[in-house]
Computed example of a mutant assay.
Amino acid sequence: MLAIRCKEYGPPSSLVLEEVESPTPGSKEVVVSVKACGINFPDTLIIQGLYQIKPDLPFTPGSDLAGIIKKVGKDVKHLSVGDEVFGFVAFGALAEEVVVSANSCFPKPKSMDFPVAASFMMAYGTSFYALKDRGQLKEGETLLVLGASGGVGLAAVELGKLMGATVIAAASTDEKLALCKKYGADKTINYKKEDLKSKIKELTKNRGADVIYDPVGGNYSEAAFRGIAWKGRYLVIGFAAGVIPKIPLNLPLLKGASVVGVFWGGFAMKNPKENMKNTQTLMQWYHEGKLKPHIHRIYELKETSKALEEMLARKVKGKLIVEVN
């Protein structure tokens, strides 16, 4: 089978497409013939050796996937050969076939095509876990989303509005913010043009944001934290800016606020039943037409490097997809 391979840590241009052996599932695993793979910002980090997970070289990147089950492990009872599914792996999905834990693989609705299914799990799974379980977002509260036009950010905007919050979307261009408005943002901040802290205060009438969703990091984090409400929850999602911020610890003290780490992958692996409940809720909302993943562009498998380069250039609104034919 064909797979994208990372043979040495480096930029997307260092990846190669080559033939590798088809995988065999363990007793509690399935092999999926991949039809589509979602590109996420961690994919750009893992190939550079900058992510918290560092697979042995060589390896195949890619985590969000959708496809058709080709083989089933002997202890798997709820999935069968031929089932259309979506799911996630730590890495390995940018290939024609991938082994997936049965607990991380879900039946794909017939109404959901493969590119949409491959754009769903990481973005919505992360954001729902962050807002519901880690941030405990309540109806009537104010949610600030940084990097709001990206894959996880846009999902957070959409989910926050669905959960009854007043949503403030922050992004780097007016074009990106226009998309956020379509996905439910009540108010917006262009942090390339406006002072983030003072604008948060202005939009919340000096009260601050109850929950702040931060997949960006870098120079924006401290400014955002200074705009948090009393007893606010600051959700640390990731560091798309490329810099892990250092926030003075007197800020959470003075605000009575919490800094909350969000590692959805770890949660999903350690708590599959709870993750399944979250996924069922998300799928119900999708069936009801309340969630609509935004796909920025679709690439072919041989164009994976181009997709990752576009992600690194921060040109993406919503999700990038690699189709596997």
Results as ranks from 00 to 15, higher is better:
residue 140 G to T: 12
residue 91 F to E: 08
residue 190 N to C: 11
residue 234 Y to G: 08
residue 14 S to W: 02
residue 173 T to S: 15
residue 235 L to I: 11
residue 23 P to A: 09
residue 76 V to P: 01
residue 11 P to K: 11
residue 42 P to W: 05
residue 299 Y to M: 09
residue 226 R to M: 13
residue 275 N to F: 07
residue 113 D to E: 12
residue 92 G to H: 04
residue 85 V to F: 01
residue 159 L to G: 03
residue 319 K to D: 00
residue 315 K to S: 14
residue 213 Y to G: 11
residue 311 M to P: 00
residue 306 K to Y: 11
residue 267 F to D: 09
residue 74 K to I: 13
residue 47 I to K: 00
residue 41 F to E: 04
residue 163 M to E: 07
residue 210 D to Y: 04
residue 201 K to L: 15
residue 136 Q to I: 15
residue 198 S to H: 05
residue 27 S to P: 14
residue 138 K to E: 14
residue 2 L to N: 14
residue 305 S to F: 03
residue 313 A to L: 10
residue 224 A to T: 04
residue 129 Y to L: 09
residue 51 Y to L: 14
residue 300 E to H: 14
residue 45 L to C: 02
residue 264 W to K: 07
residue 16 V to Q: 11
residue 305 S to Y: 04
residue 96 E to I: 07
residue 173 T to M: 09
residue 60 T to L: 05
residue 249 L to K: 04
residue 119 S to P: 01
residue 139 E to Q: 13
residue 148 A to R: 00
residue 281 T to F: 14
residue 133 D to C: 05
residue 166 T to C: 13
residue 177 L to N: 07
residue 56 D to L: 11
residue 10 G to T: 08
residue 60 T to M: 04
residue 192 K to D: 07
residue 191 Y to R: 11
residue 295 I to L: 02
residue 8 E to H: 10
residue 283 M to N: 09
residue 168 I to S: 09
residue 116 V to L: 14
residue 212 I to L: 09
residue 93 A to G: 08
residue 216 V to I: 14
residue 41 F to T: 04
residue 283 M to C: 08
residue 269 M to C: 08
residue 164 G to C: 06
residue 40 N to K: 06
residue 308 L to W: 12
residue 66 A to V: 07
residue 66 A to P: 14
residue 54 K to Y: 00
residue 95 A to C: 12
residue 239 F to L: 00
